[in-house]
Design a binder for these strands. Structure first.
Length: 484
RNA sequence: GGCCCCUUCGUCUAACGGUUAGGACACCAGGUUUUCAACCUGAUAACACGGGUUCGACUCCCGUAGGGGUCACCA
């Protein structure tokens, strides 16, 4: 049996759309679950839309996500080149074959004529479609026009009055009528192929066994199938993935939030979370386990776990998964991940001691949903002086006087603690022992203490804060609260 | 508008003719020796509608409705 080969074929137009990542991921899962190869091919046939550096950033984001390509423009392979504009002569050869077979034809229509035609069709409430004006030009006419230097495109000659049967692995048989199909452009007037042509030629030449692509391609599926038939080539298996929708419905779009993987990366989403989340957009393992690593997904992945209905992108679930994976990190790993965000906000400098950062990360880890939140969660720990409303110190029905008295008591307890005993556990034991012994209510003391150290309504426990702040700073903050 | 695809809790989904329709996120309630978070326990919550087929339909068929995609010398 031939080796399974799948490809991801983006056009280098900028950042990676989350929907495209999902397509790539599913291709990768499928390929690897069948011990196959995964190939990167750059479809840069539209020079107008091309963005410089896009290929590099693509490679960068994929390596961050954890997808390894077996072949591609950046590594060698036996099916190259892997960039379509480097394959132009190949397409010329194959379009000639199609022309000779009468499966394609020259079209000399001007864009003005085509615009005009479409406008009229729409006025008449007809589906806009090429009217096949040039479909039956004689050989002489064609030669004449070419000799005169007339610009031309080459169109696919869709057969008349027949049914085109295609097979999608997820949906089964789908039947289209050939009269609903347009004589699509295969080669543009600049000699460069369109997606519809280059994609098919390359998939065949690169011996792609399975094609995973978005649902939006379903409409051109019959034309693709016809092209395979014209060439007499065997078709790969096609898997059209359901689309990812906005919360309000409709294709996931920029207007309603972040759509690029880079956006999520910048906000501090972990690749583990993104991979896990995307996998469950249209796939489900046989068991009910929903927290899975890339490796585990590949082990469990199969076509029959895939669905066909479009899925809404639910940020809350991504947040949940991200929080989960953040909690899995050890303190050093997480600190390294958080550092850029702290640096960016000026809370630390390159010279800051790792130890201090570790402590801060340690007490923030379990409430972190995305890395960028680290700054707003911890800024008060880094500042010399914190500002807050004195009223916040008051717990339930206490008065400000009570609160200050309580803080003073705690102060003297803390003051006696040796530097070497200044740990979370020690402080906790000491304070609780004191409260119990003198029959005090926890909240009456712990809430004011916590606020005096953080100035925040919500924060980690006072013992954690004191531990991070150190004895000197802690006492200073308590003192300040008492004097306020 | 033509063509095509889709339709189970708010969301992601399980079910492949016989289940009290299961799980996860979110939400709500309780617990967890101060808050938040985390964690634990529990609750609420769905088969779009109408016809068939069948002893029996979430599951199969046909309509209807709704949603989505696509109709470029863009991918």
């Amino acid at each position: 049996m031939n080796k399974v080969r799948l490809r991801f074929a983006p056009s280098p137009t900028g950042f990676l759309h989350i929907g495209n990542l999902r397509s790539a991921l599913f291709g990768y899962f499928l390929a690897k679950s069948m011990d196959g190869d995964f190939i990167l091919r750059i479809e840069d046939t539209d020079q107008k839309r091309e963005v410089e550096g896009a290929v590099d950033s693509l490679l960068n984001i994929f390596s961050w996500i954890g997808i390894d390509f077996d072949e591609g423009p950046h590594i060698s392979g036996n099916y190259g080149p892997y960039t379509q504009t480097e394959r132009l002569d190949i397409y010329q050869k194959y379009i000639k074959e199609l022309l000779d077979k009468g499966e394609a034809y020259y079209c000399f229509c001007s864009s003005e004529r085509l615009d005009d035609m479409r406008q009229k069709q729409q006025e008449n409430k007809e589906a806009p479609k090429y009217d096949r004006h040039c479909r039956d030009l004689s050989k002489e006419e064609i030669e004449e026009k070419i000799k005169n230097g007339e610009k031309f495109v080459i169109r696919q000659k869709i057969p008349m009055n027949c049914c085109v049967e295609v097979y999608d692995e997820l949906r089964g048989k789908i039947i289209f009528k050939s009269e609903d199909l347009d004589d699509h452009v295969l080669i543009k007037s600049n000699g460069v192929p369109t997606y519809q042509f280059a994609n098919i030629v390359d998939d065949h030449l690169m011996e792609i066994s399975h094609v995973t692509r978005g649902d939006e391609w379903l409409a051109s599926f019959p034309k693709n199938a016809l092209l395979y038939k014209s060439f007499g080539w065997e078709m790969p298996k096609y898997i059209h993935l359901p689309l990812i929708l906005n919360k309000g419905g409709g294709k996931l779009s920029k207007r309603q939030g972040d759509v690029f993987v880079e956006d999520y990366r910048n906000k501090g989403y972990l690749p583990e979370a993104i991979v896990n989340f995307c996998a469950f957009l249209g796939w489900h393992p046989k068991d009910d386990q929903e927290i899975l690593s890339m490796k585990e997904i590949i082990e469990k992945f199969s076509l029959d776990g895939m669905g066909v209905s479009p899925a809404v992108f639910d940020l809350e679930k991504l947040d949940y998964l991200n929080g989960h994976y953040i909690r899995q990190k050890n303190v050093k790993e997480l600190s390294d991940l958080c550092k850029p965000y702290l640096l960016k906000e000026g809370l630390i400098t390159e010279k800051s001691k790792d130890e201090d950062i570790y402590k801060t990360i340690e007490i923030s880890q379990e409430r972190l949903k995305k890395l960028e939140d680290i700054a707003s969660f911890t800024h008060y720990l880094f500042m010399d002086d914190i500002v807050y409303d004195v009223e916040l110190l008051i717990w339930k029905s206490l008065t400000l006087g009570d609160v200050k008295k309580n803080l003073l008591e705690i102060y003297s307890v803390l003051d006696k603690v040796k530097e070497s005993d200044w740990t979370k556990e020690c402080l906790e034991n000491l304070v609780f022992a004191y409260l119990k012994e003198s029959d005090k209510k926890n909240g009456d003391y712990l809430w004011p203490l916590r606020v005096s150290l953080s100035g925040q309504k919500n924060s980690p426990s006072p013992f954690e804060l004191a531990y991070v702040l150190g004895k000197e700073k802690t006492l200073k903050r308590v003192e300040k609260a008492v004097q306020s």
